[in-house]
Structure formats: structure tokens, C-alpha cells
Simulated scan of single mutants.
Amino acid sequence: MPENNDASAQGSYVLADQPYQRDTNYIETRITRDGLDGYPVEPGRYRLVVSYACPWANRTIIVRRLLGLDRVISMGVCGPTHDKRSWTFDLDPGGVDPVLQIPRLQDAYFARIPGYEKGITVPAIVDERSGAVVTNDFPQITLDFETEWVDYHRPGAPILYPADLREEIDEVNALVYRDVNNGVYRCGFAGSQESYDAAYDQLFSRLDWLSERLADQRYLVGDTITEADIRLFTTLARFDPVYHGHFKCNRQKLSEMPVLWAYARDLFQTPGFGDCTNFDHIKRHYYQVHRDINPSGIVPKGPDLANWNEPHGRDKLGGRPFGDGDPPPPLR
């Protein structure tokens, strides 16, 4: 696979004069109630490995917390930076994950597929018994948390992927992924002016569409938080600290887009979102790892992020964040 600065860890690459390409060849094994792929839902068996820096992993952190799956699925946290080989457990004593007893996430991939040549990505779910990665298919991981792990959701957990709204949620997610979640990367890693311009226009066209959609409704689909809001939030949270400058997504800052800015603050101030967001890790990852974009590795001090706690005023649109459920308890 062609490499950029961190291709093996991120599962993506850039070729000169070509649009950015994301490697989406994931390990698609699923953990299900029927155990069809050989991995049944089982409390205490699996470890979710994440980095707070990564937007895809951040989704799984949020969903795990909202549903109360922290009681049955442990979580290992990698540091905000990595090298070409792998994410590492440098936050843990001795640089070793205390459960898996490995220093690099790569070791769990190799335990599943010796010499694994694709991206060593987070999030990844590891079978604690074998020490091998089960899956790194991040779009499916959260959906399975919501549908296959239902028996272990906390009392009062929200329904994040309601059956009657799944078609609409899937449609919105597909557009947001193409134009926004991945669109910012297509801007930042564009190999030519032409590909950058196209990605830029597509990104802001979709953000305008989202602003119109959210002008009169509190959440993306229905009147409660769903999987769609979580997928959009993790990109919006990184917009001003990283994507606006680092990825040249600079028509406007998020804080200059009134509807999306209020929407993002509404979610940030909801238990399970802001308390699962680490701006320090986010900034350190992008600015220190992407040396082809930021050769010095200097991490900017700004922007001031205290404004995330300013009143959002979205309550007037109605909606019930957790539906008939309750917010998760405070973090321990």
C-alpha cells in the first residue's frame, strides 16, 4: 500500500496529483448475539482500543458511554501520536496495555493475521482471551453496540439506532461521511489544487445543507440523539482546533456558522459527548503526526475553546436528547 506519513496506522494514503484515498478494507468480523462469526456477545471478553484523537474511535467512546457498555466492554487508550508502524500504549505505565500486555496495537493485529499489511487503525476490538483483533470496522462497531449488545445496555439507555428511522439515518450518514467526515481529509491530503478545490466545495456545500436541515430541528433525524448526530459531532468537534487551519477547510470556522455551532455546543454539553472529547489529544495528534502538512510538528496554542460551554439556545426547538431514557451517570 502506498504510504504517506502515517499510512500504516491510519489506513489511508496520498498519491501526487490525485485525490485522497481512504483504505476501507477493514477486518469485518462481527461480534453478534448468535456468534455467527465465531465471536458471540459476552460481557468481560472484549477490549475496545481507542485514541481520543481519532474521530472514528471517538464515536465508539461516546456510544459505549451513552449505552452503559463500559460495564461489560473494557477500554484501552492509546496516546495521541503514533509512528508509521502502529498506535502505542504510551499513556500506560511502562508503555504496556494493562489488560492485553502489549506495547503496540500492531501486536494484536499480528495475533489475528500474522504480518498484517493493511492499516493498524483505531478503533479496534480485541478478544482478551486470544489477544487478537476481532474487528476494526468502525462504522459497524457502533451499530453492533446499538443492536447486538442490547441485553447489556444500562437501564435508561437511549435508542441510538431506532428501527423506524434506520433508513433515514443510513441515508444521512452516507452523505455526511462522504462530504464531511471524510471530506475534511480529502481537503487536507489533496494531491492537487483541482482535487482540493472539489473537496472544499463539496464539504461546504454539505455543511450548508446541514445548517438548513438543523435550522428548525434539534437533531439530524427524529427528535432524539441518534447515531447520525454522533457521527457528525466528532468531525465538528475537530473543525476549529484542526480542520480549519491544518486541513485548509477555511471558508468559515465552525464558530462562524451559527446553526452548526449551536448544534455542536448542544451536543458537547450533553453527558456523553463533551466528557468524551479531549481537545489536547486531538490537536497533538494532527499537528505532530502529519509532518507532510506540518513539518515542524508545532502544535498551535489556539483557538480558545472555552466558548464550547456558552449557552446554545437549541432547547427552544424541543426534542428530548435521550428520548424516554436518561443521561449516563457522571464519569467515575
Rank of each mutant, 00 (worst) to 15 (best):
M1A: 09
S8R: 13
Y13Q: 04
Y13I: 05
D17F: 12
I27K: 04
T29A: 13
R30N: 10
R30I: 05
I31H: 11
R33H: 14
G35P: 04
L36V: 14
Y39D: 02
G44F: 00
R45T: 04
R47E: 14
Y52L: 00
C54W: 00
A57T: 04
N58Y: 07
N58E: 12
I62A: 05
I62N: 07
R65Y: 15
G68W: 04
D70W: 09
D70M: 08
G76L: 02
P80D: 00
K84L: 13
R85W: 08
F89T: 00
F89R: 00
P93A: 14
G94Y: 11
G94N: 12
P98H: 10
I102T: 10
Q106D: 11
Y109R: 13
A111V: 03
R112K: 14
P114V: 08
G115K: 10
Y116A: 05
V122K: 00
A124T: 06
D127N: 12
R129H: 14
G131N: 12
V133M: 05
N136G: 08
P139Y: 00
I141L: 11
F145Y: 15
E148C: 08
D151C: 05
Y152F: 15
Y152T: 11
P155D: 14
A157F: 03
I159G: 08
I159F: 02
L160D: 02
Y161F: 15
D164T: 09
E167Y: 08
V172S: 11
V176N: 14
V180E: 06
Y185K: 09
C187S: 09
S192Q: 06
D201N: 10
D201P: 01
D201I: 03
L203P: 04
F204A: 04
W209M: 12
S211L: 02
R213Q: 13
L214S: 11
A215Y: 02
Q217N: 05
I225S: 11
T226P: 12
A228E: 06
I230E: 05
L232N: 11
F233T: 07
F233P: 11
R238C: 02
F239C: 12
Y243N: 03
G245K: 12
H246M: 06
H246P: 02
C249E: 02
R251I: 03
Q252Y: 14
K253T: 10
S255C: 13
M257D: 01
M257L: 15
Y263H: 09
Y263S: 07
A264E: 07
A264V: 02
D266A: 09
L267T: 09
Q269I: 07
T270Y: 07
G272L: 01
I282D: 00
K283Q: 14
R284K: 15
Y286Q: 00
H290W: 01
D292F: 06
D292K: 11
N294K: 10
S296E: 06
V299G: 02
P300W: 00
G302Q: 03
L305G: 05
L305D: 06
N307H: 03
N307C: 07
E310I: 04
E310A: 15
R314Y: 10
R314Q: 04
K316N: 07
G318S: 03
D324E: 15
D326W: 11
P328Q: 04
R332K: 08
